[in-house]
Design a protein around this nucleic acid. Structure first.
Length: 214
DNA sequence: TAGGCCATCTGGTCCT
DNA sequence: AGGACCAGATGGCCTA
């Protein structure tokens, strides 16, 4: 017979801060969540010396808090374990996204790309690199090898992807933002190429590197 | 204060 | 049966 429960026991206790009522959900972000895990609560002094890892963990403890009323007929342990797996799965996914961000060129304002921006940017960055290779191959048949391989306006293209933090000379309009307006041209579309076989300068602007691909 | 982004929980479905 | 994956729901944080 399946057990009935209305609360989580935090047996996993790593990042979870499931609560039994709204009051707990309100206080969970101010009180040390670790206290519910049997760990000593952080002192105010400790709070001043929070490590980045702790801050990251605290940040990860956000989220769905109201558990009351969602009394489900499931096996408690199975659910807790499933939550732990799901949490770590999402952490792995986020780590992979961070790795992807780290190999994408950095922008002057160091604005962290959102998840969707990261995916779109990566998609177009790969496309731009592919175009660079393609154009270089075309030139190889007609011109000397001394011809610059770098596409105009994007000095990082043609080199190994530089880690974020290494500044790249983007032909940026300086209007990068966390919510860029996307260009309408699809990366697969040759419309982005001008008559001379060069990618139009605007293509290299940040906004245009994060076009809608959906 | 509204909207965007995010983390987490949750139940369903698919796969091994 | 149990784990992986997915999408919806929920609520916190941040910014314009």
């Amino acid at each position: 017979m399946e057990t009935l429960y209305s609360d989580m026991d935090n047996s996993s206790c790593d990042y979870s801060f499931t609560n039994t009522d709204d009051e707990d959900s309100r206080s969970s972000h101010t009180a040390s969540p670790a206290s519910s895990c049997g760990k000593p609560p952080a002192s105010p002094a400790d709070g001043l010396q929070e490590t980045t890892a702790e801050l990251q963990q605290k940040k990860r403890r956000r989220g769905r808090a109201k558990n009351q009323g969602t009394v489900h007929v499931v096996k408690k342990n199975r659910r807790v374990k499933a939550n732990d797996r799901e949490r770590s799965r999402m952490h792995n996914l986020n780590d992979a996204l961070d790795s992807l961000r780290s190999v994408l060129p950095a922008f002057p304002d160091e604005t962290k790309l959102t998840k969707i921006e990261t995916l779109r940017f990566a998609h177009n960055y790969i496309w731009a690199l592919s175009e660079t290779i393609r154009i270089a191959d075309q030139r190889q048949g007609t011109k000397s090898r001394d011809a610059p391989l770098l596409l105009p306006g994007l000095s990082c293209i043609g080199e190994a992807p530089s880690p974020r933090g290494n500044s790249c000379s983007w032909a940026s309009s300086g209007s990068s933002s966390s919510s860029p307006s996307y260009c309408t041209s699809d990366p697969d579309s040759p419309a982005a190429i001008d008559d001379f076989g060069y990618l139009k300068t605007d293509v290299y602007r940040y906004h245009n590197f994060v076009p809608s691909i959906f």
